[in-house]
Simulated assay, not measured.
Amino acid sequence: MDGTRAAFDEAVTLRQAKKLIQCMAHEQSFLLLSAPGMGKSEMVYEAAREVGLPCRSLLGTQIAPEDVSGVPRIIGERSVFCPPRILLPEQPEPFCLFLDELPACAPDVQKAFYSLLLERRLGEHALPPGTWVVAAGNRLQDRALVRAMSSALVNRVTILQLRIDTDEWLVWAQQHGVRVEIRSFIRTIPDALMRPVPADPVPFSTPRAWAQLSRALDMAERSNLLDNETRRALAFGRLSPEDAVVFCALAEESIGAIRPLEDYLRRPDLLPKSDSARWFVLDCIRQHVRDGRAAGLKPAVINRFLKSLSAEHQLILITGMVGTWGALGADKAMLALLRKVTAA
């Protein structure tokens, strides 16, 4: 358990991993590990595309040892192993070899990769100079049909543990046309971008799930099929239930894109008018304050915001967080609320 926590503490973001791959993968083999749905494969393809390398991939769960080492051919009085074309093309030009789901490979397949990962060789055949070798897979704790890797394999690669970075993903999402309501939802509830892998085989929120949901909503909208019922079916088919419920409720309220939370703190008149949408934004503000992300606001702004709310809403925000709000300078608003409540 301590080892898992330590590995996560040393994790890098997808952007950082991409830079390391582009810098070193021509000499050192990498193994990217993360929970499912983080976008490892897309990142590897993008890294290769940016430097002009074609990317060829092998899916670990769908290959046999001979798909790596090749099959023997008799030449004269000797047998020569002929590697498959995907691993050793006729033209000796560098490329990116992507070994997807390497930890899910059968032990014999993992063993077949030993010389490829360490020496960039397939038997007597060397990969073209400058070729990248990058592998990826899920972790044992993610319940993703992962096998234990041998120490010999682990010692032949640089293992990069990956972590999600919300700001980094939001930049990527905007560049790739992810719908604005999804981006604003993730900006408001960062934890919804990547939920823990559930014990049961049910949908759960990941960067891949949100990106796929965005594409599905786009296609439904272009075909005039996007209504509340369709949106709910698509969202619950991709996301964790708690995220699907809130996302659909907000979309059905038609409040538009959620603003940065500090906009509502500075201008309470921007808060949604409908009860469910307002409750949602206020709950997000409560978490925002609890996490210490409103520390840069002046006390006058904090007091004005709280005083603009109903006594019920103020009590919900302040309950259990009097010290936190007090540290922001909300003494005047809390004193006024106390007088109002006790007078009643």
Results as ranks from 00 to 15, higher is better:
Ser240Tyr: 00
His125Met: 08
Gln28Asp: 11
Pro196Thr: 07
Phe204Tyr: 14
Trp210Asn: 05
Leu58His: 02
Ala6Pro: 03
Ser223Gln: 15
Gly76Asn: 14
Leu160Ala: 01
Arg339Thr: 04
Ser115Thr: 13
Ser151Lys: 09
Ser69Gln: 11
Ala173Ser: 09
Val134Asp: 00
Val178Asn: 03
Pro107Trp: 06
Leu53Ser: 00
Asp275Tyr: 04
Ser57Cys: 02
Glu242Met: 10
Ile164Glu: 09
Ala106Glu: 15
Pro260Asn: 10
Met194Lys: 02
Arg163Asp: 03
Glu242Gln: 12
Ile74His: 14
Asn224Cys: 12
Glu101Leu: 03
Gly70Phe: 07
Leu338Met: 13
Phe236Met: 09
Leu127Trp: 01
Gly70Gln: 04
Gly39Phe: 05
Asp2Val: 12
Ala294His: 05
Ala192Trp: 00
Gly323Trp: 05
Gln175Ala: 13
Leu217Tyr: 10
Val80Ile: 14
Ser223Gly: 13
Val281Arg: 03
Ala136Cys: 07
Cys82Pro: 01
Asp167Phe: 08
Pro94Leu: 09
Arg5Pro: 02
Gly177Trp: 05
Phe280Asn: 08
Leu153Pro: 00
Glu229Ser: 14
Gly237Met: 05
Ser274Glu: 15
Trp169Pro: 06
Leu145Glu: 14
Phe280Ala: 09
Pro92His: 06
Ala112Asn: 06
Thr342Ala: 13
Glu168Lys: 03
Arg187Asn: 12
Phe247Asp: 00
Gly123Thr: 07
Val44Pro: 09
Val289Leu: 10
Lys19Asp: 11
Cys96Thr: 09
Gln22Gly: 11
Ser34Gln: 02
Leu160Val: 04
Lys40Glu: 00
Leu53Pro: 00
Ala343Asn: 12
Asp100Trp: 03
Val289Ser: 09
Asn303Arg: 13
Asp263Met: 13
Pro268Phe: 10
Leu140Thr: 08
Trp279Val: 14
Val71Leu: 14
Val71Thr: 15
Ala148Phe: 06
Leu317Asp: 04
Asp227Trp: 04
Asn138Trp: 00
Gln28Ala: 12
Phe236Asn: 01
Leu53Glu: 00
Arg208Pro: 00
Arg163Lys: 15
Phe113His: 00
Asp108Val: 02
Arg238Ser: 12
Thr324Tyr: 04
Trp132His: 10
Ala251Arg: 00
Gln314Glu: 11
Ile164Thr: 14
Arg208Cys: 07
Arg78Leu: 00
Cys96Tyr: 03
Val322Lys: 15
Gly60Tyr: 03
Arg5His: 11
Leu306Trp: 10
Cys82Val: 15
Ser240Val: 06
Gly52Glu: 02
Gln161Val: 10
Arg78Lys: 15
Pro89Arg: 01
Pro203Tyr: 06
Ser29Gln: 08
Val134Gln: 02
His125Glu: 11
Ala17Gly: 07
Val246Arg: 01
Arg121Ile: 10
Pro89Gly: 05
Leu265Ile: 06
Ala47His: 06
Ile164Gln: 07
Gly326Trp: 03
Leu239Ile: 09
